Computed example of a mutant assay.
Amino acid sequence: MDVRQLPVNIGYLNHAGIALSAEERTCLQAGFDACRFKEGFHTLKFWGIIHGINAKYYIVQGLQEDPLKPRITLYSKDYAHWARLPSVTDEMRRKTRHVRGRFTGDPSFDFEYCYRKPNFKANDEDEHGNDVLTERTSLKEEERLAATVELINHEVEVMPRGYLRKSAKDEVKPNPMWQGLSLEEALLRSNYYHANPKRMRKLTAMVPPRNVPAIDFLESIEDAHSKPWWLVRGYRGSTVVTLRSLLWEGYTFFMVPDSRTFGSFYSGYGERNLDVVHMLPCPVAIDAE
Rank of each mutant, 00 (worst) to 15 (best):
A80N: 10
E127F: 07
D110W: 06
Y115G: 01
R71S: 15
F120W: 08
E157R: 06
L151A: 11
K140R: 11
D110L: 13
T89R: 11
T73I: 15
V158L: 12
S76P: 08
M159G: 07
E127A: 09
N130Q: 13
L151F: 01
L68Q: 10
E112D: 06
T104L: 11
Y79D: 08
T137G: 02
D124F: 09
H81M: 06
A122F: 10
F120R: 15
R144F: 02
T89K: 10
Q64D: 12
E157M: 04
A146D: 01
T137N: 01
V149I: 13
V132M: 09
H81Y: 07
K69V: 13
E142V: 15
D66E: 14
T104I: 09
E125H: 05
F103G: 03
N119Y: 12
D124G: 06
T96M: 11
D106S: 11
V149F: 04
S138W: 07
R116W: 04
S138R: 11
Q64F: 04
R102P: 00
H98R: 13
I72Q: 14
E143V: 00
D90I: 04
K77E: 15
H128I: 06
P86R: 14
P67V: 09
G101K: 11
G105E: 04
P118K: 12
L145I: 03
W82F: 14
L85P: 05
H128K: 14
D110P: 11
A80T: 14
S87N: 13
L151Y: 00
T89H: 11
V149A: 04
G105W: 03
